[in-house]
Nucleic acid binder design. Sequence first.
RNA 1: GGGCGUAUAGCUCAGUUGGUUAGAGCGCUACGUUGACAUCGUAGAGGUCGCAGAUUCGAGUUCUGCUACGCCCACCA
Length: 881
Amino acid sequence: MNQLPKAYEPADIEKKWYPLWENRGYFHSDPNSGKPPYSIVIPPPNVTGILTLGHVLNNTLQDILIRYYRMRGYEVCWFPGTDHAGIATESKVDKYLRAEEKICRDDLGREEFIRRVWQWKEQYGGKIIRQLRTLGCSCDWQRERFTMDEGLSDAVRKVFVELYRKGYIYRGQRIINYCPVAKTALSDEEVIYKDVAGKFWHFRYPLADGSGKYLVVATTRPETMFGDTAVAVNPSDERYRELIGKEVMLPLCNRPIPIVGDEHADPAKGSGCVKITPAHDPNDFQVGLRHHLKVINVMNADASLNASVPAEFVGLDRYAARDLVVRRMEELGLLEKVEDIRHAVGYSERGDVPIETIVSSQWFCRMKELAAPAVEAVESGRIKFHPERWAKTYFHWMENIQDWCISRQIWWGHRIPAWYNDANGEVYVGMEPPTAPGQWRQETDVLDTWFSSWLWPFSIMGWPQKTVELEKFYPTNALVTGPDIIFFWVARMIMAGCEFMKEIPFRDVYFTSIIRDDKGRKLSKSLGNSPDPLDVIATYGADALRFSIIYIAPVGMDIQYSNDKCELGRNFANKLWNACRFRQLQGPVSENYLSLPPVTELSSDEQWMLAKLDFAVESSAKAIEQFRFHSAAHDIYELVWSTFCDWFIEAEKQPLRGDAGERARALRVLDYALDRILRILHAFMPFITEELAHAMGFLEDDQSIMFAQYPEKSGLTFDEGAVKLVDGKFELVRQGRALKANCSIPDGKKVSFYLKAHDARTAEFLKAEQGSIAGLLNAERLEIGTDEYDPAAKGAAPSLLGELGTIYLPLAGVIDVEAEKAKLNAQRTDLAGKIAGASARLSNEKFVSKAPEAVVTEARRQLEEMRSKLERVETLLRSFV
RNA sequence: GGGCGUAUAGCUCAGUUGGUUAGAGCGCUACGUUGACAUCGUAGAGGUCGCAGAUUCGAGUUCUGCUACGCCCACCA
């Protein structure tokens, strides 16, 4: 066994263990094992993606669950993989080709472009998957999948065909969101609304009867006026009732359009007249349907104006057209006024440009029927959300669910399995191309990326084939993801699971916090405030990053992250390292550390330690099972640093210097505790715990802490009184140190203390602990008694009162009497106030009669205690006179 | 417009079903290398728990209203 270096250096250790784990197949699961299953599917990162702090948090949490349940004896499987991310990848590769080869998508043509994307994917894709290994994630890499793998593509086609045959999937002409950069339709969820400054133009539309009268209509989108096919007024609006059925002359086009009566027009808004552009506005589209209006699309795919508009506007970009329309209207004296407004404008999620709403022929999926069982699954509690409140968001969306626009006019993705026969107008939809004779032309559109993602929990396990993986691991246990994709992904997976598997895809959904910088800003490349996790790992270590991010993650709120917060985890790792180093310097591991001697043979300190350890074993396990990771991390941190290192190791330095029996027992308890601490911690800090478990001799070379059993409680029953006495003992030690510090005595200088116990039984305990207390105080001499101690007789002595007694620091002649008196007076005032409060409460008849018995008894006990404390303070004060 | 969240120490946050004297980490101050650890130790300063009411013997904790900040959904001709 090599001696541990003085400081923990994570780099080499992390590099050593991960390949070893992976090569030994530790991450690979056996669906045929008899163990109970525990499974998670990874939220598949984009194949173009690189590791961000969001991924670090998300995947650390999943790894904690996986490692925890593995140690609990489950057959765990964490299914990893990546998403083809249609639009994102297509534009990324397009950019790459433009930069590297000065060619673009359209130069290559569909087939060649797709070939090049695959090529790019093989070469650069999936980087994030390699980075997850650096973080220590114990994914079953042999089961890694990609959403465009053959099997997963089968699943997509099968689902499409099934839903088509069921009548849920249909092709229709409707208003959709359109991104002029990606030149494709988008779903409602891919539109981000931003509040921006804009203008509200009020135009005069002259009546067609030549009377010179006009109607005023207002718009934020002047360039779409060429698509106007009516002006609507409310039928109940007296001002315009007479005009319904008449026509206005659409300026610039000089095309007459009807005035229709429709409830959509709100008499209270503006002039009460509203222009109707069915091709470019969802509401107007509905009005158009009601009145059988013409639908005139005025835009090309890139959002420039098309040939349906007057010649001087054709080909103009939408914003150039807007300016020109306004100018021409003004010239015609038809611009009534312009208002500045702030309004929400839809932006394309990927392209970050304003989207267009246009009428277009697309494929849709009807969602209402699919939503019903998915709502029920969450309502009934079969699926639980953590934090629970996200269920409200989910219900709200599900109850108002709209049909899903699933077709995309791009090339990278699952091509829609539909074929058209132009000769007879027939449409064929099937898993395989049509075999019927005739000229068949396949649909050129591909499916929305999420149309494969929503099948992920079962397509990754081989569906539609019947596989042992599905049999064993579906439904999965937990899903860990961000609340930002609750609609995109979580809701749809639940729907798909219910529809195609007739079974929910997961039981618990844990929504992670969003990570921000230390100023509360979102992390983004453009702000340059997005740290590279690999740099952080290189600086602090993967364990440190993992532990820190869990430790600082507030419950259900955003995380304020900065790299220096990783010092917490690094320091913690180093503390643990040195605790083990201390133990190692004491000699080889105890033979029998896996068990404990009977309680009666343990010192009170040891009982104290083991009682705290038992508590932490239980509380941290419960916290993990309830998805309170942050609380588990805090419990363990406290256990290791404060309980084990600050107090227990320090206290055990005495028995370690004792006789052989005492020393052996101390070593055995230290080993027992350390072994368990490492196992509790392993899920959080996999590398250092594996290293230490081996270095300490807890494991053989061919073993791994990954499969060590998660600790159970010791099974011993500790004397509660004894544990409390130790708490009191440590309090006295703390007070003794405080006395020394208050008198400005350097730690290194040895002084004598006098300890007066409150009663004979306590005195007996303290006497038994005399050596221990003296050691912890680094005291020259420590006297213990119950007899009356007269500080004046030995010179004025500063003192402090604890639960068990009073500790004195006799300093003949050297202490500041006035300062001492001031301190005691402050203590007296404090106690008197509290006693007044407590006795007031106790003399309140209502409190005594209504509060639970235990609370009243406890209050009485405390009052008594404070009174006797006060008495002692006053005695001391008198002694100074 | 509808919904959700947050407000506790200088900063970031804990605080379980109401029950004594509200905690931690970082930062700050003082002292300190006693053979695990200066990535450390010891001690200390620092809080009328956003505001106003209500319920209760008792409220950081429950209820109502308000203020501030943040997020989501919808609408905006």
